[in-house]
Simulated scan of single mutants.
Amino acid sequence: MKANQITKSDDCYDASVLLEKDLNTSKTIAKKVLTGVNATVSSETDTVIKAQRNRNIGLVVGSGGEELFVNLKSVSAANTFITVTTKTGFVGGAGQKAWSCQIAAELIKMANN
């Protein structure tokens, strides 16, 4: 796998990317990206971040609420392999979407700045 190239499922519920950043820097970037997509971190360990998108009331009733899982694996001192998974629920599912590809793309952008 080459650095900064997204591997994704057809529906974008799963995506992965190899960042040319150490584990701690990658985790910091991931948390910023999650905040940027209007998600709140609900739990985290050294290698896993679980977040949930904030629910929105408005045009699409029930939009938001998707669960986002970011898994980080240090593959070297300067590289971290990251997988992103979006899980949607049945309640309000019509307004929910897969965020994994967008999050992976934002990880690359922030890592390169």
Rank of each mutant, 00 (worst) to 15 (best):
V61N: 10
E106V: 02
S63K: 04
L19E: 03
K50T: 15
K2A: 13
T85E: 07
E44W: 08
L59S: 10
G95P: 08
E106C: 04
T40E: 15
N71Q: 14
K2S: 13
N56S: 15
S42G: 14
Q52L: 10
G92S: 03
K21W: 00
A111K: 01
L59F: 15
T83F: 00
K50H: 11
F69R: 14
A30D: 04
M110D: 14
V33G: 05
N24G: 00
G65R: 04
F81M: 08
N24T: 06
T86P: 00
M110Y: 10
A94N: 09
A94Q: 10
V17P: 05
I108P: 09
T25E: 03
S26I: 01
Q52V: 15
N79C: 06
D10M: 09
V61W: 13
V17Y: 04
T80K: 00
E44T: 09
I57E: 13
V70A: 03
G62V: 07
N71L: 11
A51D: 05
C12I: 00
N4M: 04
D46Y: 06
V70D: 01
K73S: 15
T85H: 10
G92E: 04
S42R: 14
I29H: 01
A30K: 02
C101A: 11
Y13E: 14
I29Q: 01
I49A: 05
A98G: 03
A3H: 03
S43R: 09
G62R: 03
S100H: 06
Y13N: 13
T47E: 10
K27A: 05
L107K: 01
S74F: 06
N24H: 01
V61C: 06
G89E: 10
A15H: 04
A94H: 09
T28H: 07
T85Y: 00
L34R: 04
S43P: 07
K8R: 15
E66R: 08
N38S: 14
K21E: 06
D46K: 11
K109L: 11
S63D: 11
C12L: 11
V17D: 02
F90I: 14
T47R: 07
M1L: 12
Q5V: 14
T80A: 03
M1V: 11
G58T: 06
V70S: 01
V17W: 03
T28F: 06
A39M: 08
N71Y: 13
E106T: 10
A15K: 06
L23G: 00
I108G: 05
I57A: 13
T83S: 11
K73L: 13
I49N: 04
G95M: 05
A104D: 05
L34K: 01
R55H: 10
V48F: 08
V37Q: 02
G58H: 08
L72D: 07
F81Y: 13
C101F: 13
G92P: 04
G89A: 11
D10S: 13
L23H: 03
